[in-house]
């Protein structure tokens, strides 16, 4: 590898590094929760490689634990991951110039963080070779952090007694993600409607309350934006 190539990977890793500090506790918390859940540390950790999307993994483990139907777990996880469509659309004009193998492989490691640092850097550079290496450097930094912290957490979670209430780390992580995600008034309306309906629908069969609450919140957010742009 030539020096400029190495520099591009290093730039990506450097850009994502501060975000990794925030990802590490999520990874540990998820791993612990998965290790204590009914699906167990093995499958819990496997979701880190198979799904590789923190919020969806957390929601899936929570629903598995509640005994939800497979269709509900799949639908919920995929709604959470629908935001990748947005990232994919924004990255597509840049990725178009990459070799096909890269265009097929790079989406697997697409995350909120890799997207955010790459799309910001892409405004300043035009070299496609630099762009794909920068993205991969950032994305792999996140991938390895997620694998190591969720793996460690799963090992620890399997041996911690349930009386420590470590499962509470899941709502805490979601809470820490929720607050910065509410950036304007329609977002707040979406969150309140979704939360209220999910609370009211907690007894709805098949754990569908989460899905119904989330979809109502999305609709409420769109309506609020229309009424008060």
């Amino acid at each position: 590898m030539s020096e400029p190539q190495r520099q591009a990977y290093r730039d990506g890793l450097t850009a994502v590094a501060p975000l990794l500090v925030g990802v590490a506790p999520f990874g540990l918390a998820f791993g612990v929760a998965a290790g204590q859940s009914s699906i167990g540390a093995g499958l819990g950790f496997a979701t880190s490689q198979i799904i590789f999307a923190g919020a969806a993994q957390l929601a899936a483990v929570q629903l598995f634990d509640a005994g939800a139907a497979a269709a509900v777990i799949i639908a919920t996880a995929l709604v959470i991951n629908a935001r990748h469509l947005m990232y994919s659309a924004a990255l597509a004009p840049h990725f178009r110039e990459f070799p096909t193998v890269w265009r097929l492989m790079l989406p697997y490691v697409m995350t909120d963080q890799a997207f955010a640092v790459s799309i910001t850097r892409y405004e300043a550079v035009s070299d496609p070779d630099y762009k794909r290496r920068f993205y991969l450097g950032a994305a792999l930094g996140l991938w390895f952090t997620w694998q190591s912290t969720t793996g460690l957490g799963a090992l620890a979670g399997a041996s911690v007694p349930a009386s420590w209430s470590l499962d509470f780390a899941i709502p805490l992580v979601f809470l820490a993600l929720l607050i910065p995600a509410v950036t304007n008034r329609p977002g707040l309306v979406a969150a309140i409607v979704a939360g209220a309906i999910a609370v009211a629908g907690a007894e709805v069969p098949y754990n569908l309350g989460l899905m119904i609450g989330a979809t109502s919140g999305i609709v409420a957010g769109v309506v609020a934006e229309r009424l008060n742009p």
Partner: peptide, 21 residues
């Protein structure tokens, strides 16, 4: 437009029942 509200909606629907009920 709807995709912007996926994160706050889903997260609130996950958090509130877990802490209020």
């Amino acid at each position: 437009r709807p995709l912007k509200y996926v994160a706050p909606s889903v997260l609130a629907a996950l958090v509130l029942p877990a802490v209020l009920l």
